[in-house]
């Protein structure tokens, strides 16, 4: 039995040099994936009508979808994959992920002010030997989430080197957010929050502490990025434009008033 249907053959696979075309293709494919996914994969399975309707509305919404590329960076073992999986699936499993190989690609749609923003998230391997592969993807990125591990001083010390690489390889206007991950660590903490904040200020990038384990600020980190990118795209040039730092401060005010950095001068 040969189940292939030759009439389905087409010439989609010419090498696409044009990035926009690639993007469009990708978008199509992702939509298609959403359409064809069935819980069973069995022949003749028909999803209930309301589900089908849902799909249809999704397709319509997707037309207005904005795609943003975000890259997760940082030393090996700081929790990039855990953070992403927590954001994507809501799950956290301690010690489950061995080192990422190369670079991983995930998409996630988030809603920002009633518009859908599709985040294309590249999860990179922190190891030195993969640098040449990951560098190639910096250039296309709209946003970079740069992680360190608050229990590992070394990973924090390397942040300057990472920022150096970013300025070498990424676009100048890329949105950068510094994240101190594993903030749930308690007594194992090796990097004080103020250090992170000071460093972020020095480089004029947004900062927050996150925890893939407790979920602290995980959603917020990605949403803040999406919001920032959307505002940039909408061309808010006025001085009152969205400021990601303010947004973060606003959002974290309720639960972390105690942790706020004290004013630097008396």
């Amino acid at each position: 039995m040969t189940a292939t249907d030759d009439s389905m053959d087409d010439d989609v696979f010419e090498t696409q040099e044009d990035t926009d075309n690639k993007l469009k293709l990708l978008e199509n494919s992702i939509d298609r994936k959403a359409d064809t996914r069935s819980p069973t994969g069995y022949r003749g399975y028909k999803p209930p009508t309301e589900v089908l309707n849902l799909c249809k509305t999704n397709v319509l919404d997707d037309v207005q979808i904005v795609i943003h590329k975000t890259i997760l960076l940082g030393d090996s073992g700081v929790g990039k994959t855990s953070l992403l999986v927590k954001f994507d699936t809501g799950k956290f499993e301690s010690g489950k992920f061995s080192a990422t190989v190369g670079i991983g690609f995930t998409t996630k749609v988030v809603e920002v002010d009633d518009t859908k923003v599709k985040l294309q998230i590249w999860d990179t391997a922190g190891q030195e030997r993969f640098r040449s592969v990951t560098h190639a993807y910096y250039r296309d990125a709209h946003a970079l989430l740069l992680l360190y591990d608050v229990t590992n001083k070394h990973s924090f010390d390397n942040i300057r080197a990472w920022l150096g690489e970013i300025s070498d390889y990424a676009q100048d206007d890329v949105a950068i957010m510094l994240l101190g991950n594993k903030a749930d660590c308690g007594t194992e903490r090796a990097v004080r929050r103020e250090l992170g904040e000071r460093l972020a200020k020095e480089y004029n990038v947004a900062f927050m502490e996150t925890s893939a384990k407790s979920g602290q600020n995980v959603e917020l980190a990605f949403h803040a990025v999406a919001k920032e990118l959307k505002c940039r795209r909408d061309g808010h040039k006025d001085p009152n434009r969205f400021n990601v730092q303010d947004y973060i401060r606003e959002q974290t005010q309720d639960n972390s008033a105690v942790q706020q950095c004290p004013p630097c001068s008396y």
Binding site: T81, V85, T89, S98, T100, I103, T106, D123, V133
Partner: peptide
């Protein structure tokens, strides 16, 4: 981690 995303290595 291969289970959670498409990877390129």
């Amino acid at each position: 981690s291969l289970k959670y995303s498409e990877s390129w290595t």
